[in-house]
Simulated assay, not measured.
Amino acid sequence: MLNLFQNKYLHEEISTLIVLIVYSLLRYFLAKGIRKYAKSNQSLEHRTNLVIKYVNILLGILAFITIAVIWGVKKDQLFLFTSSFFTVVGVAAFAQWSLLSNITAGIILFFSFPFKIGDHIKILDKDFPISGEIIDIKAFYILLKTDGNEVITYPNNLLMQKGISVLDNHSEHQEFTD
Rank of each mutant, 00 (worst) to 15 (best):
L143R: 07
F110Q: 00
V22Q: 11
Q42D: 13
G72K: 05
G90I: 02
T82A: 12
E12C: 04
D119I: 07
I34T: 04
F5Y: 13
S84C: 09
L4C: 10
H11G: 05
D168V: 05
L17F: 10
I65W: 02
N156S: 08
S131P: 02
S83L: 11
I121H: 00
I107T: 09
V69Q: 07
I103E: 06
K162G: 00
K122V: 02
I61E: 08
L80I: 10
A31N: 15
A93G: 09
V89L: 14
A68E: 01
S15C: 12
L109C: 06
L143H: 09
S131A: 14
S165Q: 15
Q174P: 01
Q77F: 07
N56D: 15
A63E: 05
Y23L: 11
G60F: 10
N41R: 10
T104H: 14
S98P: 00
G90L: 09
Q174S: 09
S15G: 14
F5L: 08
A139I: 04
I70D: 01
V88D: 04
A93Y: 07
I152G: 05
T153F: 12
L124G: 05
I103R: 01
E175W: 09
S43Y: 01
S101V: 05
V55T: 12
L159G: 02
V73T: 09
Y9W: 08
G148F: 12
R27E: 02
K53R: 08
D127Q: 15
P114R: 15
I18Y: 13
F5Q: 04
I57Q: 06
N102I: 02
F128H: 15
W71P: 00
K162F: 08
E175M: 13
L80Y: 11
G33T: 06
S101K: 06
V19K: 00
S98Y: 06
G132N: 02
I135C: 07
A68S: 03
G163M: 05
G60P: 03
A63D: 06
I117C: 01
Q42I: 14
I142V: 12
